[in-house]
């Protein structure tokens, strides 16, 4: 049998970055979400750059699951919507419906410069601009795209807020 790399220490600079935000996340999620924060990611029109970094927080280096963060396939089990965008006109209705299907506390985190205000795509016939043009937003994470650590900080801010 062949195996890959089984386990290894994290690179020092990553360890540093994740430790502080990770410990806090784990603590809040334990206290407020019974150890498990469930997130539904919605791409409301992004260029897919932001998705790459959301994938990255799931990779073995950031491994957000160990802090209690879990991505779900349905908004109906989600505590939080992690939304990238600009919201396109063609996704507006789907985003609204996703929001309606999400049970309380309905936390919404807008990801990326586009999610915050439309970014380089701005507002036009096809792009409505930032996520808050369509649904209420709790926390904004700027960046193009925001780094994995910035994403974790944004999620922390959102769960610490309510």
């Amino acid at each position: 049998m062949r195996t890959g790399i089984v386990t290894e220490p994290l690179p020092a600079e990553v360890e540093e970055e994740i430790k502080s935000v990770g410990t806090k996340l784990e603590d809040v999620i334990r206290r407020r979400f019974s150890r498990s924060l469930t997130i539904r990611q919605v791409d409301a029109g992004s260029c897919n750059g932001c998705e790459l970094e959301i994938h990255a927080i799931n990779n073995p280096i950031y491994n957000c699951e160990r802090f209690g963060i879990h991505f779900t396939a349905s908004p109906r089990f989600a505590d939080m919507l992690l939304v990238t965008g600009p919201v396109t006109r063609n996704m507006e209705i789907a985003l609204r419906r996703t929001y309606i299907s999400t049970p309380p506390p309905k936390l919404v985190v807008a990801v990326g410069d586009c999610g915050c205000n439309g970014g380089i795509f701005g507002e036009s016939y096809a792009s409505l601009g930032g996520i808050d043009k369509v649904i209420p937003v709790d926390v904004y994470i700027p960046g193009c795209p925001p780094t994995p650590v910035a994403l974790l900080h944004g999620i922390l801010k959102a769960v610490g807020n309510k």
Binding site: G45, F121, S124, Y125, A126, S127
Partner: peptide
Amino acid sequence: LGYVHKGIEKR
């Protein structure tokens, strides 16, 4: 397809 049409060519 077309859901993420952001009007890039026009932009």
